[in-house]
Amino acid sequence: MPARTAAELVKRARDEVTAAATPNLFLDRLETGDVPRGRLVWLAGEEYHIVGSDRRSFALLASRYPEPPAGDFFLELAQGEGQALGLLQDFTAALGLSEEDLKRYEPRPLAQAYPAYVAQRAAFGTAAEVALAMLANLEEWGTYCARVAEALRSQYGFSEEAVGFFRFFSESPPGFADRATAVVAAGLESGDDPESIFRAARMLHAYETEFWNSLVGK
């Protein structure tokens, strides 16, 4: 039965993400120390481009949907991405990378499909689409970030400060789920198509999977 309320749509999207989950080979190898240190440069470089893009996408959504609950929600997300960029510098510095190195890094196309889709929805989609997509994928993303932080500490000897970027994303901000659900509810009340909202969550999960797969390499 199609979801008729925001809570139903959130549950459906979360169930879909759980059902579509596949083994994360990059993290499996990271946790055994089998990812070459040079591949960590890929992780840093891709995240540099992703976080910068997402920050702009959330700022765009805040300007397109300035009224509550969407305006405050996306503004907080944009600010969070700005904070994350600062934390990423600690990781990149531990890798011996400068800001210029990050700017010169050549992104891998499939690794950037995730922020490209967020940017597309930010420009042409609805607030509810992006809110549900972020909410439905948040738990998996947070779990992956926690695994990265622990693996970098135990297998590669990084300091706690150096893995702060991944710790930051390993836990959702207080009240995030309620605020995201409120944005979805507002979208449904204004006539947004539930199937379009749900599709965004499914698509974003597929693109996140491609991000991790791209780090495995050949």
Rank of each mutant, 00 (worst) to 15 (best):
A149R: 10
T5W: 06
G71E: 01
V35C: 09
D193V: 01
L110V: 12
V130A: 12
A182F: 12
L102A: 08
A116M: 10
S172R: 00
L25P: 02
A146C: 07
G175D: 04
A200V: 02
E210S: 07
F165N: 01
R56N: 13
N213I: 00
E160A: 14
Y114A: 05
L204I: 03
L30P: 11
R108I: 15
L102I: 12
G86H: 06
E106T: 12
R121H: 06
S159H: 09
G191I: 01
P107A: 13
A206F: 13
A123L: 14
G96K: 10
E8K: 00
P68Q: 13
L77D: 03
L110C: 10
A128W: 05
T32F: 10
A59I: 01
E16Y: 06
A122I: 04
A136T: 01
R167I: 03
T92Y: 15
P107G: 09
A146M: 03
E140H: 11
R179G: 00
L132M: 06
D34V: 00
E208G: 03
E100W: 14
I197K: 03
F158G: 11
M203F: 05
L40A: 05
A151R: 07
E16F: 07
P115V: 04
L215N: 07
E139M: 05
E106H: 13
T181P: 01
L188Q: 09
A59G: 14
L152A: 14
V41T: 11
P115Q: 11
A127K: 01
V35N: 09
V51D: 01
A146N: 03
P23V: 02
A131C: 10
T92F: 15
G125F: 14
K11C: 06
F26W: 06
G157H: 12
Y207S: 07
E210M: 07
E46S: 02
F73S: 08
P107Q: 13
N24T: 08
L85A: 06
W141P: 02
G33F: 00
V10P: 10
P194T: 11
Q79G: 12
G33S: 04
S172P: 13
F74A: 10
G187I: 01
F169M: 04
R121G: 00
Y117V: 11
A94R: 11
F58D: 01
P66S: 03
E139V: 00
T22F: 13
Y156C: 15
